[in-house]
Amino acid sequence: MTISTPIKPWRPTKRDYSFQIAIVIGSVIAAYLLVTNTGFEGRLPLVIFFGIFSVSALAILAGIRRGKESAKDAIMAGVAYAGVFALLLPVVSILWTVISRGTAAIYGGFFTTDMAQDPFSSPLDEGGIAHALIGTLWLIVIALIISVPLGILTALYLTEIKGPGSALIRFLVQAMSGIPSIVAGLFIYSALISGSGRGFSGFMGALALSILMIPTVARTAEEVLLLVPPDLREAGLALGATQWKTVALVVIPAAKSGLVTAVILGVARIAGETAPLLFTTGGADDTNLNPFDGNMGTIPFYIWKALIDGSPEAASRAWAGIFILMVAVLALFALARFFSRTKKVK
């Protein structure tokens, strides 16, 4: 017995493919000729003309074969592809720039020395980022201690207790995640530093970062907790557990990997924040191990100082700082993906 293969008339045929390939090659050549023979220069006009030529050729072809509506469809599909291209272009450019410029200032002692003895314009084999690494780690640890409990408690309030004002709190948490980071820094400065006799310190910076971290943790945690099936909670309660025991022994273990993801995304959110630190940490150049007293350097502040300095060596240092931040953010993202992939709500 033979099974007849289904016919798929909507599939593009070999003829369609050859048309498309011909159009792409033709557009590349036409764009190249146009750019080399006129006043335009650089790669960007080449890409833009290639896009215009290929999309209009495809549209004309579709119009001849299937009419006006099809031509419109081809044009808008081309525009959608252009949208994705415009989205990817900056990402690729940013990654490429950071990788190509970021490694110039990194040498053996970069991670073990600080900038106490060297100005930012000193040669690249002097000084380092140790003080900033320590500062950033301290800030992240303190911000974690403050905002993880608050964020997860907020999420629990929204999903487990569903108490009065849940809608308002959900609304406020969303609004809070959009407040500019500079406002968080200004707030800590005005409330705790200005006029109080206390100076800048790492702890103040961590407080400002916590304000930015709480909404990220709370929102991601809420989404994760909502994924825990209600059957589990009901089963826990039916077995006679109190709500507290149900949450602690059933709901949270079920959502554990998702909660870890929430925390990681929170850290990724604050790791590179610069503006609030300018008002709160003071940005020291020497190593300060005590986050509660004295100015503290951080990686974003290091980049900021290098940027303000303006010399070519300082620019290299700024890119090196960015490189380290970027590696950290990428690593955090990979971690978050890892945890959310193993997430299985049983």
Binding site: T154, Y157, I161, G165
Partner: peptide
């Protein structure tokens, strides 16, 4: 139960933290 009341109080306090923080920011500035 008593344990649940404590639990609800703590979670409620944490839940309202964002409200308190936003209020403090507006108030202080």
């Amino acid at each position: 139960r008593f344990s649940d009341r404590v639990f609800r109080a703590i979670v409620g306090l944490g839940g309202f933290s964002s409200l308190i923080i936003l209020g403090l920011i507006a108030g202080y500035l």
